[in-house]
Structure formats: C-alpha cells, structure tokens
Nucleic acid binder design. Structure first.
Lengths: 220, 220
DNA sequence: AGAGTTATTTTGACTAATCAAAATAGTTGG
DNA sequence: CCAACTATTTTGATTAGTCAAAATAACTCT
C-alpha cells in the first residue's frame, strides 16, 4: 500500500500537471508539498524506481499510468470527503479542505463507494472541483476566469480553485460560490482591479490574482 | 499533536487496563500492538518522558491523566466512527472495526462532534461497546458473560467484546448481536461447551472462550 | 563567451518507529 | 537455594521521510 507521503506526492503531481502531459518541475512540487527541494528529489527518485512516476533529471516529473491511477483515487477520496463534510455534516466549505487532507488517506475504497452512493454520485465537490469517477475519468473542461472572461455578460461561477480558508471565507462573504451569478463590470489590468455586479445589486471588487481563481461560464 | 503510533499505544493501554488502576504488563501491550516487546519498551519510555503514562520497569504501565484524556478521545472517535459506518453507511458490523482503526486517527474533534450529533449522541457502538462522552466519561458497568451467567434465565446480549471479522460473522450468523435475547440451557466446564436457546426456537453451541466474549444482562 | 543567477541534485545528519538478538531481572519448582 | 524458565530491557541496525548546506547544472544577459 502507498504511504501517506507517497499518496501526497502523487496527488500533487496530478494537480500540478493540469491536464496530463507536461513535466512538473521539482521546484513547484516541493513548494506544493512544503518540503525542501532536496527532499522532493530523493522521494521522486524512489517513486520513479517504484514505477509510479517518470523523472527526467533537471526537468521534472510526470505520472505513469499506475501513479496516475493512485493519484486519481486519492483525489476522488479528497473531493468526495469534502462533499460529505459539507452536505451531510453541514460544515463550512472554507474548512473542509484541511479535514479532507487527513481523511483522504484513511478512507478505504469500500467506504468511498458508500459515501459516493450516499451523496448521490456527485460530479463536483463544494468548490466546484470535478470528482474523478471510480474508473479514473475526470472532467477537464477549461473555463474562463473572472480575470480573463468577457465583461458585461451574465456569468455563473462554476468553480473556485483556491483552498485556503481565508480566501474561501472572503469568497463566501462576497457571495462568490459555485452557482452564483454575476457579471464583470470593469477590469483594469493596469491597476489590477476587477469589479463585479451581483444580481441582488451588490458590487464586489477584487484583484486580478484573486479573480483568476474563480472560474465562470456564460449563464445558460 | 500525538502521532498515530502514540495514539495507538495510549488507546491499547486504556483498553487493557480495563477500568483504571492496574498496571498493564509490557507483554500484553506489545501483543495488542503487534510489535516485539523491545519496541514497546522503547516507546513506553518515550511516552513516560512526555508524561502520557507511568512506567514501572519490569511491572508495567498505567496512563496518566493526560494520557488517559487522549486515549479516551481516540476511543470515542473509534466507536463513533464505527457507529457511523453501520448506521449511516450501512456497512456490516464485522468490517467496521478495521475501518475505524484507520479513521480514528484522521477525524478531527470538530468532525467528531458533528458525527456525534448526526447519530443522535449514541451511548454504544454497534458491538455494544460504550462510547466515551466528550468530557471523557465512559460507562464501565460490569456484565456477566455467557461463560459466567446463571443458566436457564432469560437474557439479553448487551455487548460483544471481540472485534475480529471472523468472530463477528459467526456471531451475526448465529443471531448473537447486541439486543438479541436468549438463555443458556447448558454449560459444561469440562467439555468447555455452552448451549443456548433463542426465542425463535433455534439453538447455538459455542466454546467457553467464545462465550466469555459475549456480555449479557437479565432481560428487563 | 563568461559572470551571475536560479533550479536541482548530492551529501551528511536527524527523528520516529520498528526488528533481531543478546543481556538481565524475576519467578518457580525441585 | 539454585537451576531453569519467562518477561523485560538493552543494544545495534534498519527504513521512511525529512532538513541544511554544499555541489552542480542550466539559463540569462550583456
């Protein structure tokens, strides 16, 4: 069985490879895992020996099929657990990420399947992140963000790609959660400011970096 | 924070000290944890240095107040998780012990409280084992067992104190679960056999060792 | 092309938890 | 009361995962 550390390395390589093909540089992997670069190098070599990922020295890493299978399963656990914590236990969506980081390594495949059924086989977690299927398929649709979308149009938030508690509390407080509707009234790339209108008449301003974390689609 | 290993040592000292005061011998602790005796000695010395238990060399160990507090919290997590797995996820009671062994170390106190509320603050888990309260109180009532109770009387099973999957599947198959009623028709200490009658007319025979794992009370 | 910067890898050391096997203490039976 | 047995502790090694800091490779900029 893969240890907690192994599962975390594989999961973060998956998350950082965004889609599938590019190499993930050691630096970003080490940063994501909060370890020093040398530690990541050592661990990656061991994982490569185990056939879970491919290491191209000085360039980066890429998951093998086996590594990807494990990583997707961990991600599925993470996101289903988050959904459970919000839907069933009524926890605040800003807190469930940290909880799921622990639970994703302790939930068995059988418990996972039963959670999935209890929740009605959800496709997204509370942040709008897609939940990999048991077979390892994951929706990889590309969305515009509040930093890149057209202004003026009516939009719906589909996903908030940032897990920090502070950010999510801010988003919650500003009505920026998946499903919410809004439009971008103004975007100034010089000042780095994005202004939003909510249907209830409220307005929100945020920086482009934050705006880039919020994915939207045109209102259907 | 206590590591998984530390939580397991403390939990097993609690379970083996049965009540509170006696010293738990190193041998039984090592056996319960499935480690060699030397490992248990080393770990116990470290835990004693941390003030989580008291080590009397060559005699055994006993929890301190701090160690007991942690152990009770882990046990509470274990038993509430088991209850959740059976009640909410409809898992077989013979399998939930192994699952809970993992989850007890990953569930936060906040999730624990919410699980407790979801389940309606249960007092026993699916095996009839008492669930420690958040304050650390645990019901320590002493019951007779099928190996020690009077014969002929009408009884109700209150608890099955054995977690192995095989034993629990046997118990389930023989109708021996908490709440079930029965009476002991015969007990032969020479042959080591105990015979039971069920209200539905069925009979069950089992050895005294197994009978000792099943706690009963006179039917109210 | 060479100097400087940046990313990565290497090396050496450390901690937690474990095992195997030798040493020691305690207990018990003749 | 001593020999033998049993339980416990000690000692020496091992593994997984980590950090700090030195070494190396690669890239960039004039």
């Amino acid at each position: 069985m893969a240890t907690v550390a192994v599962e975390n390395y594989l999961k973060h390589v998956l998350l950082l490879s965004d889609g599938a093909e590019e190499l993930v540089p050691m630096g970003s992997l080490a940063a994501a895992l909060a370890v020093v670069p040398g530690t990541a190098t050592a661990m990656v070599k061991a994982l490569a020996d185990d056939g879970l990922l491919e290491h191209q020295p000085r360039l980066g890493v890429r998951l093998t099929t086996r590594g990807r299978r494990i990583a997707l399963n961990v991600l599925r656990k993470h996101r289903l657990v988050e959904t459970f914590l919000v839907e069933t236990l009524k926890m605040d969506w800003s807190k469930v990420h940290a909880e799921a980081e622990q639970l994703e390594h302790a939930v068995s495949d059988e418990v996972l399947d039963r959670l999935d059924a209890l929740l009605g086989h959800p496709r997204q977690d509370p942040h709008g992140d897609p939940i990999p299927s048991r077979a390892g398929k994951i929706d990889s649709q590309v969305y515009a963000t509040l930093a890149t979308c057209a202004t003026g149009r009516r939009l719906r938030i589909v996903r908030v790609t940032e897990q920090s508690e502070e950010f999510l509390r801010f988003a919650e407080g500003s009505g920026l959660r998946p499903g919410a509707e809004l439009s971008v009234t103004e975007r100034n790339l010089v000042s780095g400011l994005v202004a939003l209108d909510r249907p209830d008449g409220g307005t929100v301003a945020l920086g482009v970096a934050a705006a880039g974390k919020i994915l939207v689609e045109p209102r259907g």
